[in-house]
Write a protein that binds this DNA or RNA. Structure first.
Length: 360
DNA sequence: GCGATTTGACCCAC
DNA sequence: GTGGGTCAAATCGC
């Protein structure tokens, strides 16, 4: 049941991404239909998520898939509602279609197939033909690869994906350099995902604009949860021949699992998660919200596992839920949330979403 | 030794 | 001509 629901979620997720970031410019009618469709998917996922979390074995996979789907849906909703940048800029973590803002006036790099083999061409043909015609397409007529950006105070280097820095540039009009990253698995899997990190100010903590371009197609950047799953099928080379190889490489080379909170408290609820691989985490983002709200009072030991955290929440959060909802709702209001948005009508999901985003 | 990062140069769109 | 994205040699770090 869980796998089927998760698969359905992913199927919806993919279509939503296309709708949100494709070239098609939706009409007002399209907007309405899309909104209804996305809202329907959202409700479906929202309904299934608590059920999935109550299952022990498939929950990590399901959680991973649902999380991605929910993130995409939230982005899609934001895009389709054409939220003005000013209304979302105050939100610590939010995803906005990049083309809609002057802050991203310059185009992000195109789906630059020539870039991957550009070096070889350079040596073979010479500098005059260094960039192929594909590179020229990069910004013609404003045509660009899908991109969106995230405004965040969270250390943007720890978003859960594996990135390799390939450049840094001083940008005119800013006091900070812009860093350029591409997916670590670009060469291995041809994943074209890139991101740019632009520090916006010197606040404490500083604000960053993280511009993402192209979705990850490697599938391995997000297998950190799957890799830790007890589900043997996920490690069956006959089913997924690349998973073990790539994930072992991930652990060997880049052992951080950025989505896990730090371990000052009790480790993991053993009855929920017996996967030692979860502890490969070495670096974590400042996602303090990930701790159970009862941990400080010593009445809750859930902390180290996302799954354990949320499952524990289902177990004992009822008594503290009202307080939690009040806090999150107040915070959402302060952050300028649109309370007509169904997403913000569910404070627990808002809380969950923010924590996920903070830790990815 | 190998992979990641740094940094100046190159290239293209505007 | 300029700004910004990318390349790739040099360098760094494990």
């Amino acid at each position: 049941m869980a796998a089927a629901a998760a698969a359905a979620a992913v199927a919806h997720d993919n279509s939503v991404c296309v709708a949100a970031f494709g070239d098609h410019e939706p009409s007002q009618g399209d907007d309405q239909v899309a909104m209804e469709e996305v809202a329907q998917v959202y409700e479906l996922i929202k309904t299934h998520q608590p059920l999935l979390l109550l299952h022990h074995q498939p929950q990590q996979l399901a959680y991973s898939l649902l999380t991605q789907a929910m993130r995409a849906l939230n982005v899609a909703l934001s895009v389709m509602k054409h939220l003005p940048p000013a209304s979302v800029a105050a939100v610590p973590v939010n995803m906005i279609k990049a083309e809609e803002t002057p802050a991203n006036g310059s185009a992000t790099p195109g789906h630059d197939a020539s870039a991957a083999d550009g070096g070889d061409n350079l040596h073979a043909v010479g500098k005059a033909t260094r960039r192929s015609s594909a590179a020229k397409k990069r910004r013609i007529n404003g045509e660009d690869k899908p991109s969106w950006f995230q405004l965040t105070t969270v250390v943007p280097h720890e978003d859960g994906y594996q990135w390799r820095k390939y450049g840094e540039k001083k940008i005119q009009g800013t006091h900070f350099t812009r860093s350029y990253f591409r997916c670590t698995y670009r060469d291995d899997k041809g994943c074209q995902a890139t991101k740019q990190i632009q520090q916006k100010d010197n606040n404490d903590p500083p604000n960053f604009q993280v511009t993402y371009s192209n979705d990850h197609t490697c599938n391995f950047c997000t297998t950190r949860i799957i890799n830790n799953s007890n589900n043997p099928a996920l490690h069956n080379p006959a089913v997924n021949p690349d998973v073990d190889t790539i994930c072992n490489k991930m652990i060997k080379q880049e052992p951080q699992a950025a989505w896990l909170p730090p371990p000052p408290l009790k480790a993991i609820s053993n009855d929920l998660d017996e996967t030692p691989a979860l502890h490969v985490c070495q670096e974590v983002p400042p996602c303090s919200k990930f701790y159970c709200s009862d941990a400080a009072a010593g009445t809750c030991s859930s902390n180290s596992s996302v799954i354990a955290h949320y499952t524990d929440e289902f177990d004992h959060h009822q008594m503290g839920q009202q307080l939690l909802e009040t806090t999150v709702m107040e915070e959402a209001l302060v952050l300028g949330a649109d309370l007509d948005d169904p997403y913000f009508n569910d404070p627990q999901l808002l809380f969950l979403y923010e924590n996920i985003m903070n830790c990815y």
